[in-house]
């Protein structure tokens, strides 16, 4: 079996897209909450972890079928997101952004601790969704799970577009994001919209956790790193811009894969970050962010 340069390139693309899809989903979660509140939710990575771990328990220990476990997991994590908002974000009267961020850090520590106490310290694995053989495409290998990840990412993106553009609630959340006072004047319950945004963001986090766990194995401590990468993607794409997040997430994943393949695996993670910094220095509001939107939400 000979391997041409082209095969390698395709292989790196595939792996990059698989990584990037997860960054993209975490980044979308960040954006939804950012748009509603102006804060970065440091507990976003923990939603991913909770989703993955809950899915492992439901499928591997309780032997539930995939669709049932999927729905149950998303619902459960969504409830965690709602509780988080009701108990920690909502009661804060006149918050500064930094204070809210530290609150989300505290919540992330709590969620991480709870995950450790519930699921233990080991790493958990689960079977791929479909146990079919890898598909060969021009000599490169594609896992069925990778296709699942890409497919579900597409569904989530389409779902969000429809939700934000064509449903009343979605439009209300967007209105709050653009101008909270004006939205309130128009009779929108902005507090409720914040809660909804946490629910949505937790749900997306859970989905990301569910689809990635068969490939990476999940343990309680993974949240921080996933969160950081997702934050990177969100910033690179321009905070608040969901389409930007998807493109930036995929871009980061692909950069990492090519960096590791062609330059050096030792500096792989640094390279993606370096490019992110360079982009920020050239365009301080991310690739797709507008400087006007940025000015609205500062510390």
């Amino acid at each position: 079996m000979s391997h041409s340069g082209l095969t390698d390139i395709i292989q790196f693309m595939v792996m990059g897209v698989q990584r990037g899809a997860i960054y993209a989903m975490v980044a979308m979660g960040f954006n939804i909450i950012y748009n509603a509140t102006g804060i970065i939710n440091f507990a976003q990575g923990e939603f991913v972890v909770l989703g993955g771990l809950a899915m492992v328990t439901l499928t591997m220990a309780l032997n539930l079928s995939l669709p049932v476990a999927f729905i149950l997991t998303v619902v459960a994590v969504t409830v965690v997101g709602i509780l988080m908002e009701r108990l920690t974000i909502n009661p804060v009267g006149q918050p500064t952004v930094l204070r809210l961020i530290i609150i989300t850090i505290a919540v992330s520590i709590l969620l991480k601790g709870a995950a450790m106490c519930i699921w233990g310290k080991g790493s958990h694995y689960m079977h791929h969704f479909t146990d079919a053989a890898p598909i060969e495409f021009l000599g490169a290998i594609i896992l069925p799970q990778t296709l699942w990840i890409i497919g579900i990412l597409l569904c989530v993106v389409i779902g969000l577009v429809v939700f934000f553009n064509y449903t009343m609630i979605g439009k209300c959340i967007r209105a709050c994001a653009i101008n909270r006072d004006a939205a309130r004047l128009a009779g929108i319950n902005d507090r409720k919209m914040v809660m909804l945004s946490f629910a949505l963001s937790a749900g997306i986090g859970a989905i990301a956790g569910i689809i990635i766990t068969p490939i990476i194995q999940m343990d309680y401590a993974r949240g921080a790193l996933l969160g950081l990468k997702g934050f990177g993607a969100a910033v690179l794409g321009g905070l608040g811009n969901s389409m930007g997040a998807v493109v930036a997430g995929l871009l980061l994943g692909i950069l990492e894969a090519f960096g590791a393949g062609y330059i050096s695996s030792h500096y792989m993670d640094a390279m993606a970050l370096l490019i992110l910094l360079v982009v920020l220095f050239i365009k301080p509001s991310g690739i797709f962010g507008s400087s006007e939107a940025m000015r609205l939400k500062e510390f």
């Binding site: 952004v97 970050l273 910094l277 220095f281 940025m294 510390f299």
Partner: peptide, 27 residues
């Protein structure tokens, strides 16, 4: 270049810098 950035962008840039230094220390 970093202090031209604001808010979360500044946070991310400094965070990115910190990770790069950490990776260099490892590599």
């Amino acid at each position: 270049p970093t202090l031209r950035l604001k808010g979360h962008y500044l946070a991310m840039a400094t965070l990115g810098f910190a990770s790069i230094i950490h990776i260099l220390a490892v590599a």
